[in-house]
Computed example of a mutant assay.
Amino acid sequence: MTQQALAASAAGDDPAEGLRAVRALRELADRLEALQVERARRLGWSWQDIAGALGVSRQAVHKKYNRRI
């Protein structure tokens, strides 16, 4: 399913379909976030820089991604 179709399903009238679409979008967002955090670290970004871009604390982003990278 395309991202546009997922977004449409998430906003639709069928709660079962909508919730499945929300879950799929959340999983996509998580994968994209991890990819960009890894890319930022490879480019020399600090945990504080990444946290600021994501709108979270440095500690939160470090705890979530430090072992993955």
Rank of each mutant, 00 (worst) to 15 (best):
Val22Ala: 12
Leu32Tyr: 11
Ala24Cys: 02
Ile50Phe: 09
Gly55Phe: 01
Asp14Phe: 01
Ser46Trp: 10
Arg67Tyr: 03
Lys64Pro: 03
Leu6Glu: 01
Leu6Ala: 08
Ile69Tyr: 04
Ala16Gly: 00
Arg20Asp: 02
Glu33Gln: 11
Tyr65Ser: 04
Arg31Lys: 14
His62Asn: 04
Glu33Leu: 10
Glu38Gln: 15
Arg23Leu: 07
Thr2Leu: 08
Asp49Arg: 15
Gly18Asn: 10
Ala40Lys: 02
Val61Met: 06
Trp45Arg: 15
Ser46Glu: 08
Gly55Cys: 08
Ala29Phe: 09
Trp45Leu: 14
Thr2Asp: 10
Ser9Gly: 05
Glu33Ile: 14
Arg39Asp: 14
Ala7Tyr: 07
Ala8Ile: 05
Leu25Arg: 06
Val61Arg: 02
Ala34Glu: 14
Ala5Tyr: 03
Ser46Tyr: 13
Leu28Gln: 15
Arg23Gly: 03
Glu27Arg: 07
Lys63Glu: 12
Ser9Trp: 03
Ser46Cys: 06
Asn66Asp: 08
Ala7Lys: 14
Val37Leu: 04
Gln4Lys: 10
Gly18Lys: 05
Ala21Ser: 04
Asp30Gln: 11
Val37Met: 04
Ala24Gly: 00
Leu35Thr: 14
Leu43Ser: 13
Val61Ser: 00
Val37Tyr: 12
Ser46Leu: 12
Val22Arg: 14
Ala53Trp: 06
Ala34His: 08
Arg58Lys: 09
Val61Tyr: 07
Asp30Val: 09
Arg42Asp: 13
Leu28Phe: 08
Asp30His: 02
Arg42Asn: 08
Leu54Asn: 04
Gly12Tyr: 01
Ser46Ile: 04
Ser57Thr: 15
Asp49Val: 03
Leu25Pro: 01
Arg26Cys: 08
Leu32Ala: 13
Asp49His: 12
Leu43Ile: 06
His62Gly: 05
Ala40Ile: 11
Glu27Gly: 00
Arg58Gly: 02
Arg67Met: 10
Gly18Phe: 06
Glu27Phe: 02
Leu25Gln: 04
Leu19Lys: 14
Lys64Leu: 02
Glu17Asp: 14
Lys64Met: 00
Asp30Leu: 13
Ala29Met: 09
Val22Ile: 14
Ala16Met: 06
Asn66Phe: 10
Leu32Gln: 14
Asp49Asn: 15
Gln48Lys: 14
Val56Arg: 12
Arg26Lys: 11
Leu54Glu: 01
Gln4Asp: 12
Ser46Thr: 15
Lys63Leu: 08
Ile69Trp: 06
Ala24Glu: 10
Glu33Thr: 15
Gly12Met: 06
Gly18Thr: 10
Pro15Asp: 12
Glu17Phe: 00
Gln36Asn: 13
His62Asp: 05
Lys64Thr: 07
Ala29Pro: 05
Ala51Leu: 06
Ala11Val: 06
Gln4Ser: 11
Arg31Phe: 07
Pro15Leu: 15
Val61Asp: 04
Leu35Cys: 09
Arg23Asp: 11
Trp47Arg: 00
Ala21Pro: 05
Ser57Trp: 00
Arg58Phe: 02
Gln36Tyr: 13
Asp13Trp: 04
Ala10Ile: 08
Arg31Tyr: 00
Arg23Phe: 03
Gly12Leu: 06
Gln48Ala: 15
Ala60Leu: 04
